[in-house]
């Protein structure tokens, strides 16, 4: 069952994706930082919600992000 990586509600203004710390197809561990977003004066690291493989990226650096938006998907097996 793929697990979505969601943009949390930071209570902040506009946020955009800063950098992915994992590559497509890379194995990630639950709790490991996987993607960073940038708001005014602050970065926020989003961690992998499950152990698996980063199967999909739905957002990319400089993309504007909204709370709840799906940034990518983690699957249990290699894509």
């Amino acid at each position: 069952m793929p697990m979505p990586i969601r943009m949390p509600d930071l209570g902040a203004g506009p946020a955009r994706l800063s950098v992915w710390y994992a590559e497509h197809g890379e194995r990630v561990l639950e709790g490991e930082r996987i993607v960073e977003v940038l708001t005014e004066r602050a970065t926020f690291e989003i961690v992998a919600p499950a152990t698996g493989v980063l199967a999909e990226k739905h957002a990319f650096p400089q993309d504007r992000l909204d709370p709840g938006q799906i940034l990518g998907m983690i699957s249990e097996e290699a894509p």
Partner: peptide
């Protein structure tokens, strides 16, 4: 100030943070 705290138009303290977990 968006970048921190300013006195008479000049920054005296600058803010830049990161958050993990």
């Amino acid at each position: 100030d968006p970048s921190g705290v300013a006195v008479n138009g000049r920054l005296i303290a600058q803010v830049g943070v990161a958050v993990r977990n």
